[in-house]
Simulated assay, not measured.
Amino acid sequence: MSGELARSVLYLPASNARAIEKARNLDCDVAVLDLEDAVAPEAKIEARVAAVAAVKAGGFRPRLGVRINALDTDWGEDDLDALAQAGAGLIVAPKVETVETVYALSARAPDAALWAMIETPRGLIALNEIAAAGGGLQGLMLGVNDLAKALGTGASPDREPFKPWLAALVVAARAHGLLAIDGVFNRIEDVDGLAAEAAQGRLYGFDGKSLIHPSQIAAANAAFAPSEAEVQAAQAVVAAFAAPEAEGRGAIRVGGAMVERLHLGQAEALLARHAEATNRR
């Protein structure tokens, strides 16, 4: 799994100059300038010019990405070529359905990291092949709105229709060392609903959540960061295995539970994520 923090991945319309400027100092881990769903057809070219200018100018506190239009649209190939020439560090590709699409993206933007959005039934069927593509692919994202439309699912507060696909995307990401990013939560003013869905995403193993409004950043950062209790438990495991009496032992007792060396690895990884998140503050 990539070491980059991706607890909060905020989409901002590249057609909105104020949104781009605001993104420079936001507390999200990744700011994605959107050329796709958030931009009307008549504004696509202007938005591309603005995104290229932002990439070239730099100066963003979050990691900066750009979501292009799909390659089979009137704008996708030009989006990709312009951003590759501008030196974009992260390109988000929507509606990826085949491994060949990832190959094409990597070939035309060889220096960029790629995140593939899985948001169609065909994408779900090809999930493992897409995840195994290699090249610049660093992450998988679940596009829940398009997926819900394509599958014809009904509304559910706990995302019952999506649970198989939540798990499947995390499995594919973990099998190939990729980030797994959960989908958006549409009800901007539903603070409790966002917190519950972010907690569910973390429970399933996601690294972070896609966001549609800056007001959602703090909740996502909190949900996908280790709690103080988790940090203390991890520190206890690391300290216990560092003690002389643990030398050569594969399992020891810590806080009334048997802990194996696989738990030591988990504890060390959790503490590393905690340190990275702390350094970003």
Rank of each mutant, 00 (worst) to 15 (best):
A269M: 08
V259K: 04
D158K: 12
R281T: 13
L71T: 02
A6Q: 03
L26S: 09
A51L: 11
E230F: 03
A272H: 11
F241E: 05
Q216I: 02
Q85Y: 08
H176E: 13
A233M: 10
A275M: 08
T120D: 06
A225Y: 01
G65F: 02
G59Q: 12
A236R: 06
Q85V: 12
R61V: 01
A133W: 02
G255F: 11
A14E: 03
A107T: 09
E228W: 02
A222S: 08
G183I: 07
H263Y: 01
G58Q: 13
H274R: 15
E247Y: 07
S156V: 06
G256W: 10
V30Y: 03
A251H: 06
P121R: 11
R122W: 05
G134N: 10
R159D: 04
P62R: 05
R48P: 02
L35M: 12
L194C: 07
T278Y: 05
E129A: 15
K95M: 15
V9P: 00
G193V: 09
V171R: 15
A132N: 09
M117C: 11
S15Y: 02
A50S: 13
P214Q: 12
A86K: 06
I188W: 08
P164S: 14
L264G: 07
G123D: 03
D192W: 04
K44L: 12
L264S: 08
L194Y: 05
A112E: 06
A31Q: 14
D146E: 06
A47S: 13
L80N: 02
